[in-house]
Simulated assay, not measured.
Amino acid sequence: MLALLHTSPVHVPVFDALRDLAHPGLELRHHVDAALLERARSEGPDAVADAVTAVLTRVVEEGARAVLCTCSTIGGVAETAVGVGVPVLRVDRPMAAAAVAVGPRVLVLAALESTLAPTAALIEEEARRAGRPVTVRTRLVGGAWSRFEAGDTEGYLRRVTEAADSVTGADVIVLAQASMAAAGERASVRVPVLAGPASGLAAAAAVAARPGTRAR
């Protein structure tokens, strides 16, 4: 069983659909805790480290063989949690690695400011790991998050799509939040637009399928 840690319930059907499409038979168990993101936004991701570890420990006790954190703001905290007992993956790491492989000029789009720095740091980490030069620029999509919070999914995705289509001077565009993924499919910009859910779930599914895998 693969557990998923979300900070919004909107991610649940997205990952269920991806599972049905690409990983039939994979058991997913969703855990939603919006308060983790709220606190991370106001106090910083490190402030929720103990709370995240407590959640991860609980899902492992419930039988998870691996955990995928779908929130980019707290992904780094989840990934480095100590003593959990199973692998904990962040959904955006495969996306970051793919972006570095495309080219050195990476543009990160996010609807939430707290996501920008963690995503840029992750891309730079993957660039160092790959031995590739990279220049990361970040851009906040103005007005998008308020639409997301209001439940205006179409308005939210429209803002993100418009932002992607206006990008120049980049080799690849990274959509920092899992909730932005559908905008990547709608964008008409000529450079690749990468999103995390599909590749992140694939990586986590592969880890969960390994016999006897343990972490830390």
Rank of each mutant, 00 (worst) to 15 (best):
R19Q: 01
G85A: 12
V189W: 10
E62S: 07
H31M: 14
V60N: 11
V191T: 08
G103M: 12
L89M: 08
G151N: 04
R58F: 10
T168I: 15
Q177A: 06
R29L: 09
G143V: 03
V67I: 12
A35S: 05
G142V: 11
R147V: 05
V77C: 03
R90Y: 05
L5G: 00
R39L: 04
V86G: 12
E27S: 14
V32R: 03
S114D: 10
L36S: 02
P211V: 09
G184L: 01
M180W: 06
G44I: 04
V100N: 01
A81C: 07
P24T: 00
E126I: 02
A150S: 11
A47I: 13
T153R: 15
A121E: 15
R159S: 15
W145P: 11
I123M: 09
E162H: 14
L194Q: 11
L68R: 11
A110T: 02
V193L: 12
W145S: 02
A40F: 02
G103N: 05
A203I: 14
V207L: 15
R190Y: 08
P13V: 02
A202C: 04
V193N: 13
R137M: 07
A170I: 12
V102Q: 08
G184S: 04
T73M: 13
A111D: 03
P192L: 12
S114K: 07
E162S: 14
A164T: 04
A49G: 02
G212Q: 11
R186V: 00
T7I: 09
A209I: 03
D171A: 07
A40N: 04
V12F: 00
E113T: 15
R29I: 10
P24F: 02
A64S: 07
T7V: 02
V84N: 11
R29Y: 05
P211N: 10
V134E: 09
G85P: 06
V100Y: 00
T119W: 00
P87T: 00
V189C: 12
R129V: 04
C69R: 13
A204D: 07
A96E: 04
A111G: 08
R105Y: 08
V59K: 09
G76R: 02
A22L: 06
P24K: 01
P104N: 07
A35N: 07
L28S: 03
D165V: 05
E125G: 13
V52E: 02
D50Y: 15
G85W: 12
C71L: 14
P211F: 13
R186C: 00
P197C: 05
S72Q: 09
A78G: 09
A164H: 09
L26M: 08
H6W: 05
T153Y: 09
P133L: 07
E124Q: 14
A130L: 10
S166C: 15
R90M: 04
P133S: 06
A176Q: 09
G85S: 13
V52M: 01
R137K: 14
A209K: 11
S8L: 12
A176C: 12
L56E: 01
G44T: 02
S114W: 13
S199Y: 13
R128P: 01
Q177D: 11
V100F: 00
V88S: 00
T119V: 02
E185C: 12
T161G: 03
L4P: 03
P9Q: 15
A120I: 06
H23I: 00
V52S: 01
L5I: 00
